[in-house]
Computed example of a mutant assay.
Amino acid sequence: MTTKTCWEAVCTVDDLVADCGIAVWTEDGPVAVFYLPHRLPALFAVSHTDPFTGSNVLARGITGDLDGEPVVASPLYKQHFSLRSGVCLEDASVRVRSYPVLLDGDRIRLAVPVRQPAAVAA
């Protein structure tokens, strides 16, 4: 079964801060959008929720580079999450959802899953 997605507009370029994240709300829940102007691509998006604590804090994490991998360090227990894949570098069995990002004029769009209506029993 394939999951349908849509390109949801979540913020504008003016909302972004270099080398930092911002939290946005999507139909899929809270997402952290990061702007790293020294990288190509420069835009990344992962779930805002730290999987180790359940707290919505990843947009406030510190961005960096570990062996060429763009990462964000959770501000709580400092685990590093790949901004490309969402995988935790300290524990590869843990990951956050990553989202494709699109720059559309001055709008930032994320490919988020479309919620399907529940089937009605006959």
Rank of each mutant, 00 (worst) to 15 (best):
K4H: 13
C6A: 15
C6F: 14
W7M: 11
E8N: 10
V10C: 04
V10R: 02
C11V: 05
T12L: 01
T12W: 03
D14S: 15
D14G: 15
D15Q: 08
L16M: 11
I22M: 05
A23W: 01
A23C: 12
V24R: 03
V24I: 09
W25T: 06
W25R: 05
V31M: 02
F34G: 00
Y35C: 11
L36K: 07
H38P: 10
H38R: 14
L40N: 14
L43R: 11
F44N: 08
F44Y: 15
V46W: 01
S47I: 00
H48V: 00
T49Q: 08
T49V: 15
P51F: 05
T53N: 03
G54H: 11
G54M: 12
N56C: 08
R60V: 12
D65W: 07
L66S: 04
D67E: 14
D67P: 02
P70A: 02
V71K: 01
S74Y: 06
P75H: 09
Q79D: 04
H80D: 07
H80P: 03
F81K: 05
S82H: 00
S82G: 08
L83Y: 02
R84T: 12
S85N: 05
E90R: 06
E90A: 10
D91L: 00
D91S: 04
S93I: 04
V94H: 00
V94I: 10
V94W: 00
R97H: 01
R97L: 00
S98F: 02
S98M: 04
Y99F: 13
L102K: 15
D106L: 11
D106N: 14
D106P: 13
D106K: 14
R109K: 15
R109G: 10
L110V: 10
L110S: 09
P117G: 11
P117F: 09
A118D: 15
V120E: 13
A122R: 11
